[in-house]
Simulated assay, not measured.
Amino acid sequence: MRTYEDITPLMKSLGHALYKYTVIDRKDFDFGVGVNLFPAEIHMLEAINCRNGVGVTELAEEFGVTKGAISQLINKLVKKELVVKEPASDHKSRVVIRTTPKGKTACQNHREFHREHNKLFTQYLEQLDDKSFNTVVELTNQLNLWMDNYLK
């Protein structure tokens, strides 16, 4: 059985990786369309791009935030000419958000960005045998539970 002292170096290493993630999560990137986007913006853009029009309520439910927070983010994307807001054809008081051609290009470049930057880690995961891969899956689940405990 491992002791707390045995596990502490691993916890510190995980902490360093999580810290690096938070640094990256606050950094903006240009995905080839002439405007910088923060991770929250490009991920929202991706969520919109995956649909042929989506409403604020659906996005708020998906992201687990308020409709007001979604509206603020959408307005930033509108100003950057990455999305447009249109009245819904079936319900005039409802607004539908769609990506523009510039937004579609940003999404495509974002996926390429991740394909390239994730290549080594993806290759590592691909070569794992089933037992090792399942261990990583379980570790990921446990990491999420660990972080959920801090959000309570």
Results as ranks from 00 to 15, higher is better:
Val84Cys: 10
Val56His: 00
Asn52Tyr: 09
Lys119Met: 07
Arg111Val: 13
Arg98Ser: 13
Gln108Pro: 03
Ala47His: 03
Leu128Asp: 04
Glu61Arg: 11
Gly64Gln: 00
Phe31Ile: 08
Val95Leu: 09
Lys76Ser: 08
Ala106Ser: 04
Lys27Gly: 13
Asp30Ser: 08
Leu139Gly: 13
Arg115Gly: 01
Lys27Thr: 15
Ala60Leu: 09
Glu62Ser: 07
Lys27Glu: 15
Arg26His: 15
Leu139Trp: 08
Asp130Ser: 08
Glu58Gly: 10
Val84Met: 04
Thr135Ser: 04
Val83Gly: 08
Lys104Met: 14
Glu138Met: 09
Leu77Met: 05
Gly64Val: 03
Glu41Trp: 01
Lys104Arg: 15
Lys76Thr: 11
Pro101His: 05
Thr105Lys: 10
Gln123Phe: 11
Glu41Leu: 03
Asp129His: 12
Asn134Cys: 06
Asn49Tyr: 07
Asp130Pro: 00
Arg51Thr: 03
Phe113Pro: 04
Leu77Arg: 00
Gly68Cys: 02
Glu138Trp: 01
Gly53Thr: 10
Gly103Ser: 05
Ala47Gly: 01
Leu82Met: 08
Pro101Gly: 05
His117Phe: 07
Gly103Tyr: 01
His117Glu: 04
Leu139Arg: 07
Val83Thr: 12
Glu62Cys: 00
Gln123Lys: 12
Pro101Leu: 05
Glu62Ile: 11
Glu62Arg: 11
